[in-house]
Amino acid sequence: MANHSATHPKHVHHHFVDSNQQFESAKLGMWVFLVNEILFFGGLFCAYIVFRAWYPELFTQAALELNTFWGAVNTVVLIGSSLTVAMAIRSAQNNQKRGLEINLLITILLACVFLVIKYFEYEHKLHLGIAPGSFWNPTPEIAAVLDHPKANIFFGIYYMMTAVHGLHVIIGIVLMVWLYLRARKGHFNSEYYTPVEITGLYWHLVDLIWIFLFPLLYLIE
């Protein structure tokens, strides 16, 4: 029902008293959603911990197949994108339309770089027959190094963790593109930048998850 009164700002929905209540609600809602996300990934981390506690030697061996260098590069890429998102929010708060657009663009670019690197990592592994579960069919050289009956399970966990995380990156890119289009139309300013703020929260969480995935998967010596 279009029950907007003339002085209710356009971006404020009818059931909120004022802009601030709407902003605070959106942020709280996003945080509650992030709790979901943490528990969602938590299940995967739990599987990881259980299997690592059972077969520590498997994890040491298998991690050697993961390329630490590219993992580290991806970490840097994601941290950089987190920084640009934070800068984007700052730009919106300061009414800097241009800054907002540029920061969003860089974020999208970095997220794409992350996915491209991830893609090449996957391709390399699948090429060597390092696939999850019953598709586990390593080349003889790999099989010689990675001689463990449960090796397929490590990579089952690895693929699930990184794929679910990658899916979140893709969703993040879609959201950023949407934000960018809206930013170009001048929808955001210091009075109203709620979507930028809460998408930023989401993106930082994606970064947070990777901050833990990186040492747990790549850095086991």
Binding site: L39, F40, I157
Partner: peptide, 24 residues
């Protein structure tokens, strides 16, 4: 909020167990 995401990941893993045989 705290429990349902764990169901989601469990069910996702189960579906992957059927589709991709991830073996967890």
């Amino acid at each position: 909020v705290l429990a349902t995401p764990v169901l989601a990941i469990t069910i996702l893993l189960l579906a992957m167990e059927n589709i991709l045989d991830i073996g967890i």
